[in-house]
Amino acid sequence: MNHLATLLVNGVSLGCLDALIALGFVLVFKATRVVNFAYGSLLLLGAYVIGRTHDGLGFPGAVLLAVAVTAAVALVVGVVVLRPARLADPGTLAILTLGVDIVLATELTRRIGTDLLTTGDPWGARVVTVAGIQVPQTRVAAAAVAVLLIAALLVALTATDWGVGLRASAERPATAALLGIRQSRVAAGAWGLAGGLAATAGLFLVAFPAPGIGAGAGQAALGAAIPAAVLGGLDSTTGALVGGLAVGLTATLAAGYQDQLAFLGRGIGDVAPYLVMLLVLLVRPAGLFGSREVDRV
C-alpha cells in the first residue's frame, strides 16, 4: 500500500509538470490553430540559458533571464516565421515549426556538447518524507510552481482583455475580428506566454531524475505534451490539465509496476500514456474536452 501511495503522489507531482508543459502547447494551438512542434526545443532553450547563467546571475536571476529569452524567441517564431505563412494550411504550418525545432535543437545540442550543465536549483537530490512516502523536493517544487502558474493563467484567461480575446478568437474568429479583437496581438501574446511556460517547465524537467541538461529534454517535453494535449483536447485548457495529470499518473504507475507488466515488454512506462491516448481517441476523437467539429449538409 505504501508503494502505491508513493507512486500516486509522485504521479500527481509529475502530472502537474506535464500539465504545465501541455498548457503552453495548447495555448498556441488555441490562439493560432498551429501544432507547435518547436515547443520541445524552446523548453531546452530555457533550461540551457539557466544552465549557462546561474553561476553569474544566481538561480533566481537565471530563471528570470531564461523566461524572458525563451518568450522572446517564441515570439519571433510566431511573428517572424509563421505570421507571413498564416494563410497556409495547418499541415504546412506544423512542418514550419518542426523545421524551427530541428534548427534550434541542433544548435543547442552543439553548444551543450559533452558538458554536464545543471540548473543550480536549490533543491538538489533532497527528498521530503511524509507518512513514509518519499517525494523528491524537485517534484514538490515543480508541482507547487505548476499549480500557481496554471491558476494564474486560468484567471488571466477569464479576467483579462487578452484572455477574453483569446477565447473569442478560438471559438469565433470572424466574429471576434468584427468586434475589433486584433487576432495578431492575441496570437503574439500566446506565443510569448507559451515560451515563458516552456522555460519554467524546462527548469524542472532537467532537474529530475538525473540532473543535467541534454538534447533529450526537448524530446521528453514533446513526449509529455503531445499525449496530454491530444488526450485532453488540443483546444482545451481544462483538457491540458486533465491530460497532464493522466499522463503523469499513467507513466508513473506503469513504471512502478514494471515487473508485473513485464509481459507487455520493457519500457512500458514510456509507451503507456500513448496507449491511453489512443484508447480515448477511439471513443472521443476530439479528446476528452476538445471541441468537436459539426458539418452541416
Rank of each mutant, 00 (worst) to 15 (best):
A246K: 10
G232Q: 02
L288T: 05
G248W: 00
A255D: 13
F204T: 03
L288G: 05
W162H: 08
L278G: 07
F289Y: 11
G239F: 06
P122D: 06
M1G: 00
P84D: 12
A88M: 06
A215L: 10
A198F: 05
L108M: 07
L98N: 01
Q137S: 13
A220C: 01
D295E: 12
V186W: 14
A229S: 02
G202M: 08
V49W: 06
L45M: 11
V145E: 02
T92V: 15
L261W: 08
P90Q: 05
R182K: 11
Q219W: 15
T6M: 09
A151N: 08
G267E: 03
L234K: 03
L234E: 02
G196Q: 08
V276P: 10
A152Y: 00
V69W: 10
G91Q: 09
R111L: 15
V28E: 04
G212Q: 10
A142K: 10
L98T: 05
L20G: 08
L96C: 07
A152R: 00
E107D: 05
Y257L: 13
L117K: 06
R52Q: 13
G256A: 03
G46H: 08
V103A: 15
P84K: 04
N10Y: 08
L245K: 02
Y257P: 01
A199G: 00
T53L: 09
T250Q: 01
A177L: 12
T70I: 11
V283Y: 02
L44N: 03
A217Q: 12
T32G: 01
T97E: 11
T238A: 13
G233H: 07
A225Y: 06
A170N: 09
A246Q: 08
R83G: 00
D18M: 04
L234W: 10
A19M: 06
I102C: 05
R52E: 14
V147D: 03
V100Y: 06
P122V: 07
A190Q: 08
I95V: 15
V247S: 03
P136V: 03
V73W: 14
A85P: 10
F25Q: 01
R111T: 08
A168V: 03
G189K: 06
T119H: 07
I213L: 12
A159Q: 14
G56L: 14
V81F: 12
V79S: 14
R126W: 00
T97Y: 05
A221F: 05
T129Q: 12
F59Y: 15
G11V: 04
P136M: 09
A159C: 03
A199P: 05
G216Q: 14
V130Y: 03
R266C: 00
D295N: 04
L222N: 07
S13A: 15
A207G: 01
A105Q: 10
G165M: 12
L93P: 01
R111S: 11
A47N: 01
L193E: 08
R111G: 06
L205H: 09
G248F: 00
G216T: 13
L43T: 13
T109R: 14
D121C: 03
A125W: 10
Q183K: 09
D235I: 04
G192C: 09
L264I: 03
A159L: 11
G214N: 13
N10V: 07
A286V: 06
V28T: 11
G61R: 11
G99T: 02
F59W: 14
V276R: 01
V76H: 09
A38H: 04
A125G: 04
A246M: 13
L245S: 08
E293V: 14
